[in-house]
């Protein structure tokens, strides 16, 4: 099972990103574990300065805005 971490200080785009991933995962029938990371030290530890960022299994795959639906589908495949 893939673990997604959504990096962000709790802004609207971060919540939207988490919702989008959950929605796409359900649609694809993939089981995922989604975790929201709001601690600034931990976020910066991944080298992210512009949120929201997305980490899959400890690898940073995206930063600086909402990912597109197509990107999310790629991550879940």
């Amino acid at each position: 099972m893939k673990t997604f971490k959504i990096l962000g200080s709790g802004c609207k785009n971060c919540a939207n990103t988490a919702d989008l991933i959950e929605l796409k995962a359900k649609a694809a029938g993939v089981e995922v574990n989604i975790e929201k990371v709001t601690d600034m030290g931990e976020i910066m530890g991944y080298g992210v300065m512009s949120t929201p960022g997305v980490v899959i299994d400890e690898v940073l795959v995206h930063a600086g805005g909402m990912p597109t639906p197509a990107q999310v589908e790629e991550w879940l495949a």
Binding site: S9, G10, C11, M49, S50, T51, G64, G65
Partner: peptide, 8 residues
């Protein structure tokens, strides 16, 4: 950048 990114 979104103003919510001001802190990081």
């Amino acid at each position: 950048f979104c103003s919510c990114s001001s802190v990081p």
